[in-house]
């Protein structure tokens, strides 16, 4: 625009050194070994002892059409996790808000929920809420189906932990980022959405995926509501055959394979994001 400016490109334009070449085995680590090991053990049981293990695998694994076994576990985990993320994000933003009432609501929620076990929330919502609706609101024959009750309970309970994760993530972003955003005329919501949260998400990805894996395992609690997840199917099979050792070993193997797999996936996402950033 003005000619008086002389670019001093000599100072700043040193070439970026080439990245070391990355092969597919560069990131081959103990999690892959664990996953492969678990799969090998499952395959050996399945093929080397067909009569003893194949019926257990078939029953506990469940079927996609029936929506039971592993499919129930995955469906519940996925649906609940989506709601948990939304609650965690909204409450997390409220927790760092300068508006006293919003901050107060979010803090109270976190403190109350964290003090009560997840199983108690599940039981209370499933068995307790219909009674409350009947006695207080006069709604007769009010029933909550098992699946939505379980999703609600997990969302409520895990949302509090997720709130704390989002709060910590937002607070880890330097104050200057918000100031720079505001100085450009962005309002608080715009700054949160475009500047603070995208950076916070990178920071909180490890604890968030940790929560996902914990939720996947805790989803076994829904078997108390009669929902046919991996654990419930295992218990039913034991009830029929009394083969407790074999059955619970298969149940454990299925959870292990799932959790190790998702841990791998999240590590891969983290790596991808950190590559993008630099």
């Amino acid at each position: 625009m003005t000619d008086s400016h002389k670019p001093l490109s000599v100072v700043g334009s040193a070439p970026v050194p080439a990245q070391p070449t990355s092969h597919w085995w560069t990131h081959f680590d103990r999690y892959w070994l664990l996953l492969i090991g678990a799969l090998v053990v499952a395959a050996v049981l399945f093929f080397a002892f067909p009569e003893r293990f194949q019926p257990i695998f078939r029953y506990v694994f469940g079927s996609y059409a029936g929506g039971d076994g592993i499919f129930m576990t995955l469906k519940l985990t996925a649906v609940a996790f989506l709601f948990i993320l939304v609650v965690g994000m909204v409450m997390g933003v409220m927790r760092v808000s300068s508006v006293g009432i919003l901050k107060g609501i979010a803090s109270l929620y976190v403190e109350i929920v964290r003090g009560v076990p997840v199983l108690v929330w599940i039981l209370w919502i499933y068995f307790g809420l219909p009674v409350f609706f009947r006695d207080v609101l006069g709604l007769k024959d009010m029933r909550i189906a098992g699946f939505p009750a379980a999703v609600a309970a997990f969302t409520f309970a895990y949302g509090a932990y997720m709130t704390e994760i989002f709060r910590a993530g937002i607070q880890s972003i330097p104050k200057g980022q918000m100031e720079a955003s505001r100085s450009l005329g962005m309002n608080y919501i715009q700054a949160m959405r475009h500047i603070i949260l995208p950076q916070a998400v990178r920071v909180i990805l490890p604890p968030v995926s940790n929560e996902f894996v914990t939720l996947l395992k805790d989803s076994s609690l829904i078997s108390v509501l009669g929902l046919e997840d991996i654990t419930r199917r295992g218990r039913e099979w034991v009830g029929r055959t009394f083969a407790s050792f074999d059955t619970y070993m298969v149940v454990a193997l299925l959870y292990l394979i799932l959790t190790v797999f998702f841990t791998r996936v999240s590590t891969a996402i983290e790596r991808q994001l950190s590559v993008e950033k630099r």
Binding site: Q177, A180, H194
Partner: peptide
């Protein structure tokens, strides 16, 4: 009112170009 900070405060998750275009688009 434009402001330039001691610590630059660029948005680290955006490229130089995106740093410059974001507020133009949303503000």
């Amino acid at each position: 009112v434009g402001m330039v900070f001691q610590q630059f405060n660029l948005f680290p998750h955006l490229t130089a170009r995106q740093n410059i275009t974001l507020a133009q688009r949303i503000v």
